[in-house]
Nucleic acid binder design. Structure first.
Length: 137
DNA sequence: GCCAACGTTGGC
DNA sequence: GCCAACGTTGGC
């Protein structure tokens, strides 16, 4: 099973909204690198839910519930969406500042490429962030 | 609110 | 095919 991180501005689509809805369509990705990651997701993979801009912290864990399909919001039919379901919040959100201050995350795409909205999370980083967030990996 | 990083577009 | 101009994202 692979691990991922997906960014959303809480004003646009928040963790709280996903929990309330019980399920969410991850659409609107318009970047090819991010889209390639969406295509690589398998049902059952887990992903961190990251609040960008006003949050700048990882707030929860969700599961990929439906593998990629054509993004209905993309008229050109180029980009794809996936469906996610919320699993659990982190007991303690893990902030970008925390991650940046730890040198073991220097190679993490969240730090390296701040503009990428969907990215893979290496196993060691997944474990470390779960530990920091107070949840079992 | 600013700006750096990055992607895309369009003129040549 | 290059590159300048422009738009967007997201951290600060």
């Amino acid at each position: 099973m692979k691990h991922w991180l997906m960014k959303s501005e809480p004003e646009a689509y928040s963790w709280q909204k996903l929990v309330k809805d019980g399920r969410g369509m991850w659409d609107g990705v318009r970047n090819h690198q991010a889209a390639a990651n969406l295509r690589a997701m398998k049902k059952g993979d887990l992903a961190f839910f990251y609040h960008s801009s006003t949050g700048k912290e990882i707030v929860g864990i969700c599961r990929i519930d439906k593998e990629f399909y054509t993004d209905p919001t993309d008229k050109t039919g180029t980009f794809v969406a996936v469906d996610v379901v919320p699993i659990k919040p982190l007991k303690q959100p893990v902030t970008l500042a925390q991650i940046k201050s730890d040198p073991s995350f220097d190679d993490f795409l969240l730090v390296r490429n701040s503009r990428l909205s969907v990215m893979p999370v290496p196993e060691e980083h997944w474990q470390a962030i779960c530990r920091m967030g107070g949840v079992k990996a």
